[in-house]
Design a protein around this nucleic acid. Structure first.
Lengths: 138, 138
DNA sequence: AAATATAGTTAGTTTATACTAACTAATATA
DNA sequence: TATATTAGTTAGTATAAACTAACTATATTT
């Protein structure tokens, strides 16, 4: 059990460091942690409006509005007015905004590669099977 | 290979969410990402001075000095003047500052528990073996 | 001993990140 | 239809997080 905790800790560090490295690769060092979190959440929520984004981030609407305005200014986001409710607008990631996801995909792929480099086909299949089990609901 | 990348992505999310949850548990929500990063780095570097901390964080000394002053004010850190070089002081985490590490330990343990809950003894040993191989140097 | 370098600090500035209070415009409810 | 609510905005404020330039005190080099 002790050894498992150690491994989890190492995995955690590996993910953190890989993300940092990927951030440099993708020239996203200028983005703060907070800004990354905004873009990740917008991606996760799939074109939320400001109210939804604020709720998800547990921040007030004015706070989120100011942040969103800056992202629009810097061409990471754009707004599309809603047809159903003309008060509301959906937030979309621009190509530049989507870089964050590409960055995530990139370092996930790199970690996956480093895993498969260390194991043979059979071991890899076993690992995938066990991790799937471990990550399954309930 | 595709499935492995998917698993890595899920692991990454699991770690992120577990850390967020642990942060609430330990009443560290008042700390920003940046502040967490400072404390983690100070812990990692083992009582660095301001110059070393600034170099590691890739920030200027005045920036780090201001941040450190606030941590001292809030009783997360204290300084000990160096004997060898009287210009320099080492940064130490207080008990409160060490909460961050305890928080890390806590969520690593929780993840490890959730893993072991899903597998029997034999599977768990196999998983630990494979992950150790995967996390080994070279 | 004088000149140079280093650790840390101070002051001043900019931008990011958060808040509350009060507002407009559109939608939903009584 | 008058009233409530909701989505978003504006204004004003406070603190965090970063910088450069210039300084003090100590250590190192010439």
């Amino acid at each position: 059990m002790k050894s498992l905790v150690t491994i989890v800790s190492k995995l955690s560090n590996l993910f953190g460091q890989s993300e940092e490295a990927a951030k440099e690769q993708f020239h996203l060092i200028s983005l703060t942690h907070t800004q990354m979190h905004y873009l990740e959440t917008i991606n996760l929520l799939h074109n939320p409006n400001i109210t939804e984004l604020a709720r998800s981030l547990k921040l007030t609407k004015p706070t989120v509005k100011v942040a969103v305005d800056k992202f629009i200014e810097k061409d990471f986001l754009y707004k599309i007015q809603s047809d159903e409710d003309r008060r509301s607008a959906h937030l979309h990631l621009t190509e530049k905004g989507k870089l964050i996801n590409q960055m995530h995909d990139y370092y996930h792929k790199r970690i996956a590669e480093s895993f498969s480099r260390k194991l043979n086909r059979e071991e890899l299949e076993t690992l995938v099977g066990l991790l799937n089990k471990v990550l399954s609901e309930k």
